[in-house]
Amino acid sequence: MPQPPPSQSETLPASPVPCDRDILDTEPMLRNFGGPGPTVTMLYALFLENADELSRVLNERLALGDLDGVRLAAHSAAGAARTAGAGRVADLFGSVEEAALRGDAAVMRRDAAALDRALADVKILIARI
C-alpha cells in the first residue's frame, strides 16, 4: 500500500541558525563549511570587520566628494557582502557604486545612510549563529 508523501516538516530539517534570507542567507556558508562552528564564526567576524571599515571609508570619501574612492569602497564591500550572504547590504553597496559611476550624490547619500541599519540587522543575525 502506498504511503502518503512526507509532510513539509518531515522533509525539511529545522535550521539550527535563525535566518532572514533578505538580511542574511547563512545556508551557503553553513553548507560550505559544515555547519556553524569556529570557521564560520571567524569568516563572519572578518566580514563584519571589513564591512564596517569599508563603510567608514565610503562615508569619508563621500564627505570629500571623492567619487572614485566611494565607488572602489562600495565595490569591494558589495562583493564581500554577497559572499557572506548579506543580500540587502550587498544591494545597498552596489547601488552606491552605481550611483558613484553616474555621479548621483543623492542616491549615494541615501543608500550610504541606509547601510548602518542594514549592517546592524546582519550583526544581529550573525550574533545568533
Rank of each mutant, 00 (worst) to 15 (best):
R82F: 10
D20R: 06
R31D: 06
R61E: 01
D121Q: 11
A77D: 02
A114L: 15
P6E: 07
V40N: 00
P13N: 05
L12G: 00
D111L: 08
A105R: 14
L43V: 06
A105H: 11
I126K: 01
P36C: 07
L125F: 07
V89C: 06
L67N: 11
E97C: 04
E60D: 07
I126D: 11
A80S: 14
A77G: 01
A100V: 04
T26A: 15
D104H: 01
A80W: 01
L64P: 00
I129N: 03
L54M: 08
S9L: 15
A81P: 05
R88K: 14
V107I: 09
L115P: 07
C19D: 13
A99C: 02
P28S: 09
P36D: 14
L72F: 07
L43D: 01
G103K: 12
L62Y: 07
L30Q: 05
R102H: 10
D52Q: 13
G65T: 10
V122T: 04
R128S: 14
R110F: 00
L92C: 05
M42H: 08
A118T: 00
D104P: 02
T11M: 10
V122Q: 08
A14L: 12
P6A: 14
A112L: 05
R56Q: 10
G79A: 01
S9W: 01
S15W: 10
D91F: 08
N50L: 05
D20N: 09
R128G: 10
A74Q: 05
F93C: 08
I23C: 14
G37E: 09
A127R: 15
E97A: 02
F33T: 04
A86K: 00
